[in-house]
């Protein structure tokens, strides 16, 4: 045991020395961690001032297009477990029956019933997952985003059945083994924590739109502040008939659908 540790240490030290020499001679770039720059909002945010929301125009969403899913899962180092039981998903596609199971399909056309609908965390204004979390790891942020603090998650998985939309996934296995193309700018998760969509809070702080919104070739996704009556999303919500998922549960989702 001791010997193994020693070997490991010597291996790593030697590697470090070589890397240091390489960096000194300019052969290897010194470090490739995330660049540190001050965020766009450098003052402390006012709780409740912003409420981020998303509008999904399902008429524009192409059935065989997976670009939003690929962009999101790449951006956040989401592992690609093939096994359905271990699957981790932040954003995925589903049928009308599964996305709106409590809506009556009488009067809904065949075309709509065969359409695919993007599902993701709804970032509910009245979120059951944050209310049930025993450690406060799942919490409501100042800007309406429901975020998981992975430092606090103990993996009890209460939030998973509490969420009526199935937005949470549990890391049964070490996720680092199954990340296809890891990015250095965002951390991974560890085995034994629950994870889900974070509305790209990591991109919002840099003044960027969420990865899925940016990746969509049809501009089917609109992102904005629901508290700002002049925002694009509010304009579109006022001029279109929209739907929320399971509105009768009173969770007040921040994700809206144009059917």
């Amino acid at each position: 045991m001791m010997n193994e540790q020693r070997r490991e240490f010597i291996k790593k030290t030697t590697l470090g020395v070589f890397a240091g020499l390489g960096a000194a001679s300019g052969l290897v770039p010194a470090f490739s961690l995330e660049k540190t720059a001050l965020p766009v909002w450098d003052e402390k945010p006012v709780p409740g001032k912003i409420r981020w929301g998303m509008l999904i125009d399902t008429r524009k969403c192409k059935e065989d297009c997976q670009q939003c899913i690929a962009a999101c899962h790449h951006e956040h180092n989401v592992p690609a477990f093939k096994n359905r039981r271990e699957e981790i998903r932040w954003i995925w596609k589903n049928s009308y029956r599964n996305v709106f199971p409590t809506a009556d399909i009488a009067g809904v056309s065949k075309e709509i019933q065969n359409r695919t609908f993007i599902s993701l965390c709804n970032h509910c204004a009245d979120s059951p997952c944050t209310q049930i979390c025993p450690t406060g790891a799942t919490f409501k942020r100042w800007d309406g985003i429901v975020e998981i603090d992975y430092h606090r998650c103990i993996g009890c998985r209460f939030c998973m059945p509490a969420c009526p939309y199935g937005s949470l996934s549990f890391n049964w296995e070490d996720p680092r083994t199954e990340i296809v193309d890891p990015v250095t700018a965002y951390p991974t998760r560890q085995q034994g924590v629950v994870e889900k969509c974070n509305f790209c809070s990591n991109r919002l702080v840099k003044g960027l739109l969420p990865a899925c919104v940016e990746a969509c070739p049809e501009q089917a996704l609109v992102f904005g502040d629901l508290n700002d009556p002049r925002s694009d999303i509010r304009m579109l919500l006022e001029s279109n008939v929209t739907m929320q998922r399971k509105p009768e549960l009173g969770t007040k989702p921040s994700v809206f659908y144009i059917i």
């Binding site: 001050l38 909002w41 450098d42 402390k44 945010p45 919490f139 100042w142 603090d149 430092h151």
Partner: peptide
């Protein structure tokens, strides 16, 4: 940072 959004 995580709980209050105070990043500076």
């Amino acid at each position: 940072v995580v709980r209050e959004g105070d990043r500076v």
